[in-house]
Design a protein around this nucleic acid. Sequence first.
DNA 1: GTATTTTACAATGTATACATTATTTCGACG
DNA 2: CGTCGAAATAATGTATACATTGTAAAATAC
Lengths: 223, 223
Amino acid sequence: MSAERPKNNVARAVDMLRELIFSGTLAPGSDHLETELALRLGMSRTPVREATLTLEAQGLLQVRARRGVRILPISIKDMEEIYDVLTALESTAAADAAAANHADTGLDALAATISAMEDALAVQNREAWADADDQFHAELVRLGGNQRIVSITQMMADQVRRARAVTLYMRPLPVKSNADHRAVLDAIRRGDATLARKIHARHRAAAKATLVGLLKQHHLTQL
Amino acid sequence: MSAERPKNNVARAVDMLRELIFSGTLAPGSDHLETELALRLGMSRTPVREATLTLEAQGLLQVRARRGVRILPISIKDMEEIYDVLTALESTAAADAAAANHADTGLDALAATISAMEDALAVQNREAWADADDQFHAELVRLGGNQRIVSITQMMADQVRRARAVTLYMRPLPVKSNADHRAVLDAIRRGDATLARKIHARHRAAAKATLVGLLKQHHLTQL
DNA sequence: GTATTTTACAATGTATACATTATTTCGACG
DNA sequence: CGTCGAAATAATGTATACATTGTAAAATAC
C-alpha cells in the first residue's frame, strides 16, 4: 500500500510552485511577492518562504530582497551550459551502467522507454515521445548507480523543461534520437563502457546543437 | 572600496554552520536541535532553520523532522560518487578552457596556483599544498566558463573537505599531481581540448584511486 | 513479566506580530 | 525646473507564540 502520508505545507508549496512554474502560470522573468504567493497557495508566508529557498537552490527561481522571487528565464547560454553538464554526467552514467554488467532483466526498463519512443514516433505523438525520452535519460542515469548524478541531472532537466516544451513542435520528428538510444542500450548490454560513453556524448551534443539552432533560428533568446 | 555590507542572519548562520561542520565541531553523524543551534549562533530559530535548508540543498546535512539536523558523514561510496562527478565536470571545463583559446595572461592565475603548489611541496607544507590544489581546480573550472559547473564542483568539493583533511597526512607527498597540473595547463595553452580533457580525467581518476585506497587501508569507512 | 495502549512531552511546523531596510515619493532649496 | 534629501511606505528579515505530531515513557491488562 502507498502510505499517502499527508505532506506538510512546505512540501506542498514546493510542488505547487513547481507546477505553476512549469505550466507557465508564473511566467519566466516575472516577480512575485511572498505575501501574494502565500495568499495564492492558501498558507502563511513561512512555508512559502522555505519552499522558495529550496527552489532557489534548485535553480528555478531567485529570491531577491524586497523585490519578491523572480522566476528565472532560460537563455541560450543557460541551455548550452545545461546540455554540457548533462552530456558530461550522463555519459559517465552510461559508461558506469555498461561496466556494471547488468543482467538483461535489469535493462528491461530502459528498453521499454525506447519502445515507447518508437510507438510515439509512429503515431507522431510528440508529447508522448518527449515523456519517453525523459524516462530513457532518467533510467539510464539510475542504472549508472551514482546518486549524485541522478540528483544533478534531475535538477538540470527541470531547468530546461519549459524551453524544451516550446521547441517540441518546432523540430523535425526525432528519428535519429531513437537510433542513438538503441545504440547506447546495445553498448551497455555488451558491457562496452567506452562505446556507451562515446555514443551517448555524441547523442547529447547533437541534441544541444539542434536545440540551440532552433532557438537562434526563431530568435528565442529567453524562455 | 569593499562595501562590507552587513550580512543578514541567514547568511551569517550559513557561514557559521559551514565553519562548525568543516572544523569538526559539529561531528559527522551527530544530530543537533534547531533550538540548540539557534542558541549557539545567538539568533532565533527562523534564520537558523532557513540556513539548514540551504545547507541541506548543498548536501552538507540532512533535516529530519523532530530529530534535529544530522551532519552527513561521508562514506567511501560517497567519495567515489563525488570524484566521478568532479572527473566528468572538470574534464569538460578543461576542454572548454582549451577551446576558448585564452590569451596567456588569462592563464596567469592558473599558472600561479601551480607555482604555489610546487613551493609548498618544496618545504613539505601539506596544508599550503592542499589550498593551492583547491585553487587550481577552482580556477580551471572558472576558465571553462560554465557557471553551473562552477557551482556543482564547489558543492562537491565542500562535501569531501573533511575527508580530504583527514587523509592529507596519510598520503605520500603528491609529486605526480603537480606534473599533471602542469600538463593540463600546457594543453590548455596550446588549445588542445581533447588532450586537456584526457589528462585531467586521468588526474582525477588517479586522485580518486589514491584516496579510496587510503581510506580502505586505514579502515576509514565513515568520515 | 511482557506487550499494548494511552498519555505526556518535546521538537518541529506554522502563523503572526514586529524590526529592519531599501525604494519611492514628496518637498524644499538651489 | 532640476536635483538632492528626508520621510513615508512597503517589502523582507526576525522573533515568538502557538499548533501539530511523533516519540517515548508509564501504566494497565493479559
